[in-house]
Amino acid sequence: MIEATDISAPTPAKMAAPQTLLPARPEQGRALLTVLVVMAFLAALALLFARGADRLSDRWTAQLSSSSTVQILIMTEAERFAQMSAAQDILIRALPNDARMTSLSRAESARLLRPWLGDTGLPDDLPVPGVIRIDSEVRLPAESLETQFEAAGLRTVIDDHSRFSGQLKRTVGRLVLFGIVLLGLIGLAATAVSMFATRAGLAAQRDIIHVLVQAGATDGFIARLFVTQAARRGFIGAGIGAAMAAVLWFLISLGPARGSVGWRGLTDGALDGVALICLAILFALICASSAGWAAMRQLAYERRRA
């Protein structure tokens, strides 16, 4: 007796692995992925630099806004002690109780002039301006102080660093704008690369697309295949590029840049990590949307030609 064998359901060992409708071409995929990784790496560095510059500006602005200086134009060295004491008395009455006042000695004030006068020793009879530094969260009443200094016969210059703080903010604003423009240009480049890769894929896999059309596949269905492929490729490339940029920035933060644009602690790294993840998602969306747009246009063109 011959036993019947059920051949309708293949055994797991004989089942073929599911294949994608758009088979990948390893040589083309590696080259395109390399380009995406490089672009994502540059975009991530631009983002990290812009965020680091903005953090540095906030720290410097906070330090500048909480400190001021009063320069007393000493007439003669013999009058230094009297004029400095008179200026300190006026400041003590005008400043809040939590303010800290530091008077620089003549030698310390002279060191401030080295960038302009060099290391040459100053004559002992040369009147060096007296400098009083004030650390306070409260802004100095500059107009009232100037009136009191004038009444006491003192010639002073009050500097609350507002001008330098404004210049710093404008400079950092330009740097941040430069980073945003660079990110935009890299995004345009990623769009062009994704569109070119999609058109190349449509041309290389024309036979498969023809079979799908004969089987009743719509343009939207075929375009979604390229959208999925481009999104996956863009996210992987952006993830690798962003990770490389994060490692480089971490190494930079261990060096002299730690106190400047680099990370100062875990909070900075965590916030920038979230920003890099968002950048990778945006990169994938750019690649996917540009691939979908290019695929729909090309498929519509092919249908008109047919």
Rank of each mutant, 00 (worst) to 15 (best):
M1L: 10
T5S: 14
A13P: 03
Q19K: 07
T20N: 13
E27Q: 10
R30T: 13
V37M: 01
F41H: 01
A50V: 04
D54H: 12
D54C: 10
S57T: 08
L64S: 06
S67T: 11
T69R: 01
I74Y: 01
E79I: 07
A87H: 06
N97V: 13
N97S: 13
D98M: 15
M101H: 03
L104S: 00
S105N: 07
G118M: 12
T120F: 05
P123W: 11
P123D: 12
L126Y: 09
P127V: 04
V128R: 03
P129H: 05
I132M: 05
P141Y: 06
E143I: 11
S144P: 01
L145P: 05
Q148I: 06
G153N: 09
D160E: 13
S162F: 09
F164L: 12
A192V: 10
V193W: 09
F196R: 13
G201W: 00
A204R: 03
A215K: 15
A217L: 06
G220Y: 03
L225H: 01
G239Q: 06
M244C: 15
V247M: 14
S253H: 03
G259S: 13
G262T: 04
W263E: 05
G265A: 14
G273T: 03
A280C: 10
I281L: 13
S289F: 14
M296Q: 08
E302Q: 09
E302Y: 02
A306V: 15
